[in-house]
Structures are given as C-alpha cells and as structure tokens.
C-alpha cells in the first residue's frame, strides 16, 4: 500500500520528528510509513488523516493485493 505521507509532510515543511511528535509515534514509525515498509493501523491512519485534514483514501492509496485468501 502506497501513501502520500512524505509528500504531505514536505508540503508542510515538517521534519519527520515533528510529524512523529504530532502523531505521538516514534520517528522510526514515520520513516517506515513513508517507505511503505509498515502499514498503519486504522487508528493511526485516521489520526494521520485528521492531522492533514484529508480523508484516509486521499492519503493511503489502496491497491488490490493478491493473497492466498483473496484468490
């Protein structure tokens, strides 16, 4: 799942640490989210959406994933 967190953060001229403090998560979590290595929970995704004043769908770009259960 891709997301626009990095783009939105840069547009607001924020550092990863500032965003992490605002979301009450560690900087490492912000880095992992931006790199797409970690998928946020619904709760964190909502927190991020509220922070940027957007909807979850506008930040997180869902893609159809092929998994064993979805075949």
């Amino acid at each position: 799942m891709n997301n626009r967190i990095s783009e939105l953060r840069k547009a607001r001229q924020m550092t990863q640490q500032e965003l992490a403090d605002a979301l009450m998560v560690t900087r490492q979590t912000v880095i992992s989210l931006e790199n797409g290595r970690y998928n946020a929970s619904l709760l964190l995704a909502h927190k991020i959406a509220v922070y940027f004043g957007l909807t979850i769908e506008e930040i997180f770009l869902f893609e159809e994933e092929t998994t064993c259960s979805s075949n």
């Binding site: 403090d21 009450m24 998560v25 560690t26 490492q28 979590t29 992992s32 946020a40």
Partner: peptide, 11 residues
C-alpha cells in the same frame, strides 16, 4: 510513553 504506545514498536 510514545515509544511504549507506538504501534510499530508493538508490531
């Protein structure tokens, strides 16, 4: 507190 409640840390 942030480190303790961080969801990625829990994962």
């Amino acid at each position: 507190a942030i480190q303790n409640n961080d969801e990625r840390e829990w994962a």
